[in-house]
Every structure is written in C-alpha cells, then in structure tokens.
Design a protein around this nucleic acid. Structure first.
Length: 449
RNA sequence: GCGACUAUAGUUUAGUGGUAAAACUCGGGUUUGUGGAACCCGUAUCGAGAGUUCGAUUCUCUCUAGUCGCCCCA
C-alpha cells in the first residue's frame, strides 16, 4: 500500500511523456501532416484498442520480445493481455476478420500509441506514437511505388529537403536467396547473418569481416564481394542467372523507374538494408537522414505477404510502413522545421467590469461561440489593467470588457492587443469582425489540443 | 538484463564539513475603465534512507529517479 504521508510524485511514469499544451500543439502538428498526407492518397483512418490478447504477438514476433519487452499481464478473467507493442498484428487481425466483405485494394492508416517494456534511452521511450500506413491486396510493384511515394510526400509535407534524406531500397527475396541458397544457411545461422549485414555500417571494417568469416567460413568472400558492390549493376553481375533472382531484379528496376518518373530521385539501392528479420517477404525500404552530425535510419517498411498466416486464412499481399513521432520530432528540431506560430487558445477574452454584468457577459459569450468565435470568459473582479494583462499573457489576441458604458451605448470596444487599437462595435457585429481576423491569420495552423 | 554519469527553488545553474546564491518563470503589490516596462515582496525539510562527525546539502553506503551507452529493436 502507498504510504499516506508520502506525497505523490508529479513525474510521469517511466518512459512515457506528458503533453502539456505547448508540446501537444507540436504533436498535433505532426499528426496533422501524417493524416492530411495519407488522406490525399485516399487512405482511410482506423483505430483499435491498445489491449490485445498476448497470443497475437507470440507467432510472428520472437519469444524474447513477448516475454521481456512487452507489457503483458493477466486480467481478472485469467486472460493474458498485452499492451500493443506494434500495430501490424492488430491491423492484420482487422483485415483477416473482414476480408470477405472488404473491397480490395484496401488503403488504411492509423496513428496508434505503442508500448514496449525496456530501458528508455535517446529516441526510444516506453510509449510512442507511430503512423502506420498500409495497402492491402495489391501484389505488384505499384503497391511499393505508392507506399514509398506516400512516405516521401510526408517528408516533403514536413518541409524536409530532398538533399537531407535518401530512401534506400532492397529486396528480402534476393537477400534470402543469397543467405539460404548461395550460403547454405538456415534457422538461427541465417538470422545471425542477416543481423550482421544489418549492422555492418555501425561496425569497424575489420571487426565486421572477422565476425563474418567466423559465421560463414570460406564463403565469406562471396558475401563480401556482394556487399562491397558499388551499385545495383555490379551487385547483379556477381549473382547467378536464376529465374527467381531475375524476377526480383526486374521488380527493383521497375520500382526505381516508377519513383524516378514521379520525380523522386533521392532513392538508392542498398544491398545491406535488412529491416529486422521477421515478416518482410519482398521489397524493403528505409528513409535515411543524411545529416552528417547524426546519420541514421528514420523509419521504413516493406512488403509482407504472409501477414495473415497466423489467422489461417488466404494470403493478402501487403505493403506498409511505420513512422514514429519521437524520431520525426527530433529531425524537425534538428532542421529547425517545427512551426513557429502555435495556435492561440481563443479569439476573444471577455470580462465584466463587475458582477452586475456577468449575466450579460455569459449571454454574449454563448452567442459568439454559436457564431464560431472562441471565447474565454474572465470571471474575476479585478482591475481593467489586470484583465488586459491576463489576456495578453494567455496570448489571446482580442479583449472586450463589459461595463456600464458598453451597456448604455450598445457599442462594445474590442481591443486588438498586438496593435493596441480599439474598435467600437455593435453586439451583433463582433462575431463577423473576429472571424474575418481569424481567417486572415489561418496560416497559424488550426491544430489545437 | 548489464555498465557509466547525474540529482540544489517551477526552470536553468552557482556554492559550502557550521542548514544556501543568481537569472528567468510564477503568485501578490506599487496603480479603482485599459496590458507588455520598472521597482518591492513571496516561493528549497539541497531526490529518499542509513552511516562517519560536535555538526552533513557537502564525505561513505543503499535505494529511487533521470541521462547516455550495451543488449534488443516490432
């Protein structure tokens, strides 16, 4: 039990964030770019509970992740419950459940909060929000083209320049062929090799080569040749002429061509790109921040055609990606791209000179609100100077104070705080006046918390 | 799960083996129909517990929390 004498901490729970209004406005800006861009591509928004049966994560995700890196507990009915650590199994469940009535291709997105139980560190918290966008039911390279151009448009939507990032692509089919058929590896061995390839850029050259020869023995030379290839053509030239491979190569070429045709030129083939090990079955991609001070992977995705296997239903080819809020916020800060003008809490700060006029103030506030004006009422009996000062502190652009003068003349003085100018208006003209001002300042962003 | 570093007002930081200082913020005032300034006042059991000591915010230990790495990365 909690010690009643001990005061509770005001700190948030470990690894999660509080969004005070100023932070919330930034978060809403990010969500706004995500959602608007997805909608431009005709993607529909869905939501689901953060609670899922623990079994949902036992199939595709490794045991270690479920046991040690999720929030899993037993409910009062003895069911094992997990706070979702990722959205993909959930959306797979939704698609599988309604597959007979859905009209494919289905284009969906969501901005869920996800939980993982691990030690918080830079860029990795216990709760974060992520945009998940997927297209279901398109087996061809058009799906990859669309998803990657959606990811690219989101980067553009945030104002990030093409020169600051690149999109890397690879094919898991090709890599699986190399690791499985050419290097003759399977199971844990194959997994380790894939991991090692993934980590190559973070390792010293000698350390990498040593680890590789320990893992592969004689065959390390072939893999090194492949990984050291300067470009796609050279990479292909070291591989045998197999039907399976040439199909994948054709896919990669088609994808590069289609994206180039759309004017997306900061895209490169990267044979070291692996993206985890689990459910990808075809093209994988990653958006990479080229900032020399901190080059890193920002987010990525790819094709996962076996997604619905765990529900024992027919396959639905899928391409998708996930993009976290923590990382993108960090990038926007680095490139100084966060919006400068945060939205104001209200348009008008309204107050009565003294108690006598409070009823009238409330009536006026109500009619203005119904006309679309955001009104804050100050109920204090303080001095006029204090009221004006408080309006200014609250960053509300207009003030009106109701007293005897206003009541008898029928003219209400509405003060523009940034100009210090007053305009006397009849009661029924105020809404029009403020809305006009509002629309003139629309670039201030309409996202509020 | 492992390791390193850190913990002083709301925030950012100074400082000392004899119970603390500044800036900004916040609240109040100087000003009873018009703000942004200035000035004044107020706000800290120095993260928690124990030990050493005449005396600990300062030294030691434990715990807790935070930051950064490793592991892992959906």
């Amino acid at each position: 039990m909690t010690d009643p004498k001990k005061k509770l901490s005001t700190e948030a729970y470990k690894g999660v964030r509080d969004f005070y209004p100023a932070d919330c406005a930034i978060e809403q800006y990010i969500f706004g770019v995500w959602k608007e861009t997805c909608k431009k591509f005709g993607y529909e928004e869905y939501m689901a509970s953060i609670l899922e049966p623990a079994d949902l994560y036992r199939g595709k995700t490794s045991e270690e992740i479920v046991n040690e890196q999720t929030y899993t507990f037993t409910d009062r009915g003895d069911r094992e419950v997990t706070l979702r650590p990722e959205m993909t199994p959930t959306v797979a469940r939704l698609i599988a459940g309604k597959r007979k009535t859905l009209f494919f291709p289905v284009r969906w997105f969501s901005t869920p909060n996800l939980f993982r139980y691990e030690r918080p560190q830079r860029g990795r918290l216990r709760e974060h929000y992520q945009l998940n966008a997927d297209i279901f039911g398109l087996p061809g390279i058009e799906a990859e083209t669309e998803i990657i151009s959606l990811a690219y448009e989101i980067m553009r939507g945030f104002g990030i320049k093409d020169s600051n990032f690149e999109i890397r692509i690879n094919s898991r089919k090709v890599m699986n062929y190399i690791i499985g058929t050419l290097l003759g590896q399977s199971g844990e061995q194959a997994r380790k090799t894939a991991q090692l390839i993934d980590r190559r850029s973070k390792m010293e050259k000698e350390v990498f080569e040593k680890a590789l020869s320990e893992l592969l023995g004689e065959k390390d030379a072939l893999l090194l040749t492949l990984l050291n290839s300067k470009n796609f053509e050279e990479f292909v030239s070291h591989l045998p002429e197999e039907k399976e491979l040439s199909e994948s190569f054709a896919e990669i070429k088609a994808l590069l061509g289609a994206l180039n045709a759309l004017g997306i030129t900061n895209i490169v083939f990267d044979q070291t790109l692996m993206r985890g090990f689990d459910y990808y079955t075809g093209i994988v991609f990653e958006v990479f921040d080229k900032n020399p001070a901190n080059p890193r992977s920002l987010f990525g995705g790819g094709r996962y055609d076996d997604l619905l296997d765990m529900f024992a239903v027919e396959k639905v080819p899928t391409v998708g990606f996930g993009m976290g809020d923590v990382t993108i916020r960090d990038v926007l800060e680095t490139y100084d791209l966060l919006p400068k003008n945060l939205p104001t809490a209200a348009d008008l700060y309204l107050s009565a000179m003294d108690k006598e006029w409070t009823g009238y103030v409330n009536d006026l506030a109500q009619s203005l609100r119904r006309a679309g004006v955001r009104v804050v009422v100050d109920y204090s009996e303080g001095k006029v100077g204090t009221k004006v000062k408080n309006a200014d502190r609250a960053k509300i652009p207009f003030v009106a104070i109701i007293g005897e003068q206003e009541k008898t003349s029928g003219q209400i003085k509405v003060k523009n705080l940034s100009l210090g100018k007053e305009t006397a208006l009849a009661e029924d003209k105020i809404a029009e006046f403020l809305i006009k001002y509002q629309s003139a300042n629309e670039d201030q962003s309409t996202n509020t918390c």
